[in-house]
C-alpha cells in the first residue's frame, strides 16, 4: 500500500531558480526508500516540502491518498532526523524524547513508559538525564532518532543523518536505523549523497540529479542497470562510449570499433558503459580479432590499495580506465583490453 505519494512536485525559490521539476514517487507502508544524489540536487528541499516546512510551487503531497498540502507541519505526524541533530539544548535526553508525546497530550505515566521503551531500544537508558551538549555526535544522533521514533510517525524523514559522523559510527548507526525501522514497521524516507549508504539501507533507491528524478529502483537494479548516463557515472561506471547500433541489434559501432553486448535490447541506445574493475587487462598481443578486444598503451598507473588503477590509451576508444590487482604492468607497456560482452551496459540517454 502506498503510504505517501509525491505528485508532480515543482519548486522555485524567490530568485526564480527552479530547484525541483515534476517530481513523482511514492513510498509504501513499512518501506525505507532513499533519495540519492549529489549535493545541491534538491534532496533537502523535497524532504522539507513533504514535512511541511516549505511550500511547493506546484504539485502535491498525499498520505494514504489524501492530499496534506493544507495541513501545517505540526499536525502532519511526521518526524525528521536532521544532519546536525537539532536536539533541544535546554532539555535532558529524556525530556527531548518525551517532547513530542507531551505535545500530543499524553499522560505522564504513559509518557514515562513509552520513553523508557524507546531509550532502551536505542541503548540510551543510561544517558536519560544528560543534556545534549554532554553527548558525543553519535549519541546525539541516537537521541534524535529516539525522539523521531517515539511518536510512531506516519513517515520518518532522515536528511543525511550520518554525514557528520566518522566512518565506523556511520556504519553502525546505519544498521541501527535499518534495524529499528524494520522492527517498528516505520515508513521512512532517507536522504543521502553516499551511494554505499543508500544501497545498504534501503528497499528502493531514488536517484536525483539537478532537481529531477533519474531512476527509481531497487539497489540491485540501479547497480546493475543504471537507467541514465548520470546514474551510471554516480555509481561508479567510468568508461563511456558513444555508439550507434548496427542492424543485428546487439552489435554497436563506436567510431571504427565494433562492440558486442551479450543482451539484446529493443530500447534506443546512445552509449555503452563499463566499470573499470570489469575490464580484463592482458600482456599478450594477440592480433586476431577477438570480440570486444583492443590494443593500448598504459599511460598512467595509480595505487588504490586493493587494486591498481591503469589508464590505457587506445587507438579508437580514447583513454580507458581499468582497475586490476595485477601490479606488473608498467607505464608505456603495450597491453590488450577485453570488455566482456556481459559487463557492458547500454544507456538510452
Amino acid at each position: 500500500m502506498q503510504a505517501m505519494q509525491v505528485k508532480h512536485l515543482s519548486m522555485s525559490y524567490e530568485n526564480g531558480k527552479e530547484v525541483l521539476t515534476d517530481i513523482n514517487f511514492s513510498v509504501n507502508a513499512g518501506e525505507l526508500v532513499s533519495i540519492l544524489g549529489p549535493s545541491g540536487c534538491g534532496k533537502t528541499t523535497t524532504l522539507r516540502i513533504i514535512a511541511g516546512l516549505q511550500r511547493q510551487t506546484s504539485g502535491n503531497v498525499a498520505i494514504d491518498e489524501q492530499s496534506i498540502d493544507s495541513v501545517p507541519a505540526f499536525k502532519r505526524n511526521m518526524s525528521m532526523v536532521f544532519q546536525n541533530y537539532a536536539l533541544f539544548p535546554h532539555l535532558s535526553v529524556f525530556e527531548n524524547v518525551a517532547f513530542g508525546l507531551k505535545q500530543r497530550g499524553i499522560g505522564k505515566t504513559a509518557i514515562r513508559k513509552r520513553v523508557a521503551e524507546i531509550l532502551s531500544l536505542t541503548e540510551l537508558t543510561d544517558l536519560a538525564n544528560h543534556r545534549p551538549h554532554a553527548l558525543s555526535g553519535g549519541q546525539q544522533q541516537r537521541v534524535s532518532l529516539a525522539r523521531a521514533l517515539v511518536v510512531n510517525p506516519t513517515l520518518l524523514l532522515l536528511d543525511e543523518p550520518l554525514s557528520n559522523l566518522d566512518r565506523a559510527l556511520r556504519l553502525s548507526l546505519r544498521e541501527e536505523i535499518r534495524r529499528l525501522q524494520q522492527k517498528l514497521g516505520i515508513t521512512a524516507l532517507f536522504v543521502t549523497h553516499d551511494q554505499e549508504e543508500s544501497f545498504a539501507i534501503s528497499d528502493r533507491v531514488i536517484v536525483m540529479n539537478g532537481g529531477h528524478i533519474e531512476q527509481i529502483a531497487s539497489a540491485q537494479i540501479v547497480y546493475a542497470h543504471p537507467a541514465t548516463t548520470f546514474v551510471a557515472k554516480f555509481i561508479g561506471f567510468e568508461n563511456f562510449f558513444n555508439v550507434t547500433r548496427q542492424e543485428t541489434s546487439n552489435e554497436y559501432l563506436s567510431g571504427e570499433t565494433h562492440l558486442y553486448m551479450a543482451e539484446k535490447t529493443t530500447k534506443p541506445v546512445v552509449r555503452l558503459c563499463i566499470r573499470p574493475e570489469n575490464i580484463r587487462l592482458d600482456t599478450s598481443m594477440d592480433t586476431d580479432t577477438q570480440q570486444n578486444s583492443l590494443n593500448g598503451i598504459i599511460c598512467d598507473k595509480t595505487y588504490l590499495g586493493r587494486t591498481y588503477r591503469y589508464v590505457v590509451a587506445t587507438d579508437h576508444l580514447g583513454q580507458i580506465k581499468v582497475d586490476s590487482e595485477e601490479a606488473t604492468h608498467q607505464l608505456g607497456d603495450a597491453v590488450r583490453l577485453t570488455l566482456p560482452s556481459d559487463k557492458l551496459i547500454a544507456l538510452a540517454e
Binding site: 501545517p72 507541519a73 505540526f74 536532521f82 546536525n84 536536539l87 533541544f88 539544548p89 505535545q103 511518536v151
Partner: peptide, 24 residues
C-alpha cells in the same frame, strides 16, 4: 532546525516560541 524539530514534534509555532525559543 531546532525550532523545526519542535514543529514536527507537534508544537505549533506559538508553542515552539514559548517552550523552545524562550527557554534557550
Amino acid at each position: 532546525t531546532i525550532e523545526e524539530a519542535s514543529w514536527l514534534s507537534g508544537a505549533s509555532k506559538i508553542k515552539t516560541f514559548f517552550r523552545v525559543v524562550i527557554p534557550n
